[in-house]
Simulated scan of single mutants.
Amino acid sequence: MIVATSGLTKRFGRVTAVDGVSLQVQEGVRFGLLGPNGSGKTTLVRMLLGLVHATSGSIEVLGEPMPRRARTVLPRVGALVEGPAAWDHLSGRANLRLLDAAGPGRARHRRRRVDAVLEQVGLGGVDRRPVKAYSLGMRQRLGIAAALLREPELLLLDEPTNGLDPRGIQEMRALLTSLNEAGTTVVLSSHLLTEVEALCTHVGVMDRGRLALSSELGALRTPTGRVLVRSPEPDAVVGLLDGQVVDRRGDTLTVRGAEPAALNARLVSGGVRVTGLTEERRTLEQVVLELTGTGNDRVDRRPREAVVPGRSRGAGGPR
């Protein structure tokens, strides 16, 4: 296993941020750690890197115990946690050269390696302006570049698409997929379900510090028992199926209780043209909402006590 934890717990005073998490991440996967804000995702990632020490439980990263073997493990890991850090008065290229200088035996290849990772993340043409003049998206790209400097076996990324525009998100997804296909295991934490669903092969769901679920993504998206039908003749579909259509949006209709092949045969035999027919499956959003609460950043207003007009609370109030 690339990552393995057992009974991992972290308490900050009376607050339990991570509660008995036993997680396994296999080599070569793209693993997404999902959950509402405050669910313990970032604290878990920080413990994997040895930045926060566990209250109890055990951690192994790349087959080594953490944080005891951090000096052996961390040179093989690229990480971005809680936003990119940088010397703001220096350029992005100068930042990376300083970071790369901390690695052993790399002086001869430093300039070439820095140029390569800047190109990978879409900053190949960056000028000498200081990092303090960068946009949030540029800073995020620079943080990813720093994580790639040592050609890591494992990437641990916290909200890697934060600050990126839609094109930047698409480019980052393509980059992480290509790195993974070349042999790098990718573990990322995010609250963006659509990004995890588009990128990851496996998913873990955190809720109130606990690991509510860990599974291959495909195994979660089970059939709903409904079929999505596309037809240029939606009225004919409704008439033929007589009450089985439960939703209609333009030329797409949702049909309940039907087996796709049999449904297609029925429509075709009834003279209805069909341009698309797919089995509906649960979305990752549905799975996560079923498993998690409202999140720890929500503050609801408590219902006020009703007051009978003309009567004060001190005079008996409502009963």
Rank of each mutant, 00 (worst) to 15 (best):
G125H: 14
R129G: 07
V274A: 01
V3W: 07
G92T: 06
Q24P: 00
G63R: 08
L241A: 08
V15P: 09
R128T: 15
E216A: 06
L118V: 08
V18K: 10
Q170V: 06
R256D: 10
P65V: 09
R266V: 03
V18R: 01
G317N: 08
L49F: 07
Q244R: 15
A212V: 12
R141V: 10
G78H: 07
E285Q: 13
V227G: 11
R68Y: 07
P309A: 04
S312Y: 06
G7L: 03
N296Y: 12
G314L: 13
V288M: 12
L142E: 01
R298T: 15
E153I: 13
R106M: 02
E151D: 13
S231Q: 00
V73G: 01
G92Q: 03
D247V: 11
V186G: 13
E195Y: 01
G218V: 00
L217E: 00
N37H: 03
V52D: 08
V272I: 08
D297I: 10
V246I: 14
L188C: 08
I59Y: 05
V308R: 14
T283W: 01
T252A: 15
D242F: 02
V114F: 04
S190K: 14
A145G: 03
T224I: 01
P36W: 07
V126Y: 04
P152G: 05
V18P: 00
G295P: 14
A261C: 00
L142R: 04
P84R: 07
H109D: 15
A147V: 10
G57Q: 02
G225S: 04
P232F: 01
P75S: 09
W87Y: 15
H109Q: 13
C200F: 01
G168P: 03
V307E: 11
V73W: 03
N180P: 12
H191E: 05
T254W: 09
